[in-house]
């Protein structure tokens, strides 16, 4: 996909998003309370109808970004302006209105649906929370329409989640997320838990929804090929920070941050033409987010690291249009 959505105004603008989780508090009273720096100063924007892919390895903070945006988790610092209004400082009434316009699709299609509710009740739940959204007389028709739009049948409305396969449950979760015609979807690894042969069904469904509803999307995944397929732009996270962000084709074809390069090269791929790049094997492991390296967090594993990398945190800078990288020695 190409980046053509940039010209319109951002519908969400995130600045300095930070989330620290306290750990082991109270054991040593005089010691400064230790924290896990799950997300540590993240900036990005998403425009109308645009999908931003968020990638990075487990523990780098992707879900925490999603959960703080939804206020399922309170941020430690930062702001997230949705049409100019800060989600993080919104009171209960305002938050309820914002939540109506941003919906979330979760990773685990087994855990995210209430097993005691019928599909019809699950999809109608948002209308119970927002009674003015849709008159009750129209629920049944709209449920049938939503089920069809996600590739299920109207008669599925009377069934329970356990009667469905993983892929079908994810469709139900997506139907629920669409019930309020949101302007933005936050999808946290929506296909990761599905069988390989079923993932493509859900990827195609999300693609169809993008095309038909022009919904904006924060799409989180660790499968780089899936993200590439569905995103206009992509942000790469490492240890709580975004290290590179840009149009998807440019980042995949010419990554500028060494970590992005290593991550892309590590993905096992079917490449009969053998035109893939050399594999970069990173040394060591991801450091603990409780005690991240000074300066650039990737420097302890980077083959380009110099003294400055330990001393100064490289900011995300755009020295090429729309393509930002946080590195002292970018490609």
């Amino acid at each position: 996909m190409d980046a053509n959505a940039q010209t319109t105004a951002a519908i969400i603008e995130v600045r300095g998003l930070t989330k620290h989780f306290p750990i082991g508090a109270g054991l040593k009273l005089r010691q400064k309370a230790a924290v896990i720096r799950a997300v540590d100063g993240v900036d990005f924007a998403i425009h109308k109808g645009e999908t931003l892919g968020l990638v990075g390895e487990s523990g780098c903070g992707k879900s925490t970004v999603a959960r703080t945006l939804m206020r399922l988790e309170e941020p430690t610092a930062g702001e997230a302006r949705f049409h100019g209004e800060d989600i993080f400082s919104a009171g209960d009434a305002r938050l309820k209105l914002i939540r109506r316009r941003i919906q979330m699709v979760f990773q685990d299609p087994y855990a995210s649906l209430n097993p005691r509710m019928r599909v019809a009740q699950i999809i109608a739940e948002p209308w119970v929370i927002h009674p003015d959204a849709l008159p009750r007389s129209e629920w049944a028709a709209r449920i049938a329409e939503l089920l069809q739009s996600v590739g299920l049948l109207p008669e599925h409305a009377q069934r329970y989640p356990h009667e469905f396969s993983g892929g079908q449950r994810q469709r139900i979760g997506i139907a629920r997320a669409l019930a309020l015609n949101p302007e933005m979807l936050v999808c946290d690894e929506p296909v990761s838990a599905l069988d390989v042969s079923v993932q493509a069904q859900v990827v195609n469904l999300l693609e169809k929804i993008q095309a038909n509803s022009h919904v904006a999307c924060l799409f989180i995944a660790h499968d780089l090929a899936v993200v590439r397929h569905l995103s206009h732009r992509i942000a790469v996270m490492y240890l709580g920070r975004i290290v590179e962000i840009g149009p998807v084709d440019r980042v995949y074809r010419a990554p500028r941050h060494p970590y992005t390069k290593a991550l892309l090269s590590a993905q096992p791929r079917i490449d009969f033409a053998q035109n893939g790049s050399e594999r970069i094997l990173l040394k060591g492991e991801v450091p603990s987010p409780a005690n991240p390296p000074s300066g650039c967090r990737f420097r302890t594993r980077c083959w380009k690291a110099q003294a400055i990398c330990a001393e100064q945190t490289p900011p995300l800078v755009a020295d090429r249009p729309q393509h930002q990288v946080a590195c002292h020695f970018p490609e």
Binding site: V196, S197, N204, A225, D271, A273, N275, G276
Partner: peptide, 14 residues
């Protein structure tokens, strides 16, 4: 059905 890096795919074929 899987996204590929070696060929252009308009749509996945699930």
């Amino acid at each position: 059905s899987v996204p590929r890096s070696d060929i252009e795919q308009q749509q996945l074929n699930p």
